[in-house]
Design a protein around this nucleic acid. Sequence first.
RNA 1: GCAGGGAUGGCAGAGCGGUCAAAUGCUCCAGACUGUAAAUCUGGCGUCGCGAGACUACGGGGGUUCGAGUCCCUCUCCCUGCA
Length: 387
Amino acid sequence: MVRIEEVNNIRRATIDTPHGQINTPTFMPDATYGTVQEVSMQDLRDVGINEFVTTTLHIEQAIGSEYLKEYGSMHKFTGWDRPILTDSGGFQVYSLIHRNSSKHNQITEAGCSFIDYKTGNYNFLSPERSQYIQHLIGSDIRVVLDEPLIEDDSISKIRQSVERTTRWAQRSKKAFLEFNQLSEADFNNPEIKRPLLCAVIQGASSFEYRKISAEGLIDIGFDIYGFGGMPLRGKYSWKEDGKAGSFYHELTSYVAELIPKDKIRYALGVGNPDNLKFAIESGWDLFDTVLPTRNARHGYLYVNSGEGDASYDNFDVMHIKSERYKFDERQIDTKLVNPAYPKLSRAYLRHLIRMKSGSGTRVATMHNLQFYTQFLNGLLNRSPIPA
RNA sequence: GCAGGGAUGGCAGAGCGGUCAAAUGCUCCAGACUGUAAAUCUGGCGUCGCGAGACUACGGGGGUUCGAGUCCCUCUCCCUGCA
């Protein structure tokens, strides 16, 4: 089901899923409500996207897994015949609880309970419920419900998060096997075609607890191990501290080493192109982030070095709404191969984004995704043009 | 012609003697966003200055007052009734 090779010191994995192969390293955009906002499934194919991530919680709220089951599947519904990964909803619950903590929003051993702020409805998401929804969605890769811990927190909180995540992972796997009518032996039989299951390593900024978390999950046995709970703020923020030799780099490298070589490594929520480059070099295979899509909507474009107005190690940023592009007749990124819109000027895209035009956000989103795919292909010395 | 109402920063619109370089919204300028509850959020936005600060400002002109978008007179323009 998984084959690993190494080319120029970079891992490359081939993963067989019910809907075709995934070739890593690869970046998966986030299709939160069953859509990568602003673009169509055909657009995704056109810019070289092969798989995407969608979120259990949002699908359940916006579409309904029972509806998808009745309709057929997420693949049939969307017309996407390639791999789909469903996130468990753990991060979404975490995110919403931290934005709006109330006595109704809480996480207990049983699961996550919270009030939907739009409908006022009470929601409950347990490890089993998350697996069930993902089962009805019919995704190719499923993630176990976990309890993220992004901020640097006390050791007791870290311990609780790690231990609960491990217990939930155990419950999730049990539910996964039941829903798919598989035995543990079946799970370990590479001849049997089935969706893949991913557990998420927690432990915040603690090397010790990252190791404990990884070992606990590896004991249970999964196809994919994720790195969860990136520190976005605080002392060990990997946003501020993302350079070679930094704490964040040491931590993610360390965790990658804890995962068996023949298992897939998924860095959840990573990252900008610099982050991706480092994570790939330190052995991670799968990535997803909202950056290229959300930023595109805000007129923040990823472009090749020398093309934008702000420079990072391996890329530039173009703030396309800026006055500086008012009379710029060039295409968005003159170094991009086969751009989706070669005749569209920066000046006009600036106008479209400023007017909040759907055509503008679509072009910007396609551009950013295309930049990401070409950036990865460049790192791997693959052809920049997808097959 | 008579009576009444009104003129405030790019626009809309607060302000009813001092705490007004002037609320608020929009526009505009800059920025942020990392398993998306984000078409969201954060700054800036009279002029000069990095800054403290200085200067010029609430239709024009003239008064009252220690002090005036704020009160009085007058002019210009706009709106509403009556002729």
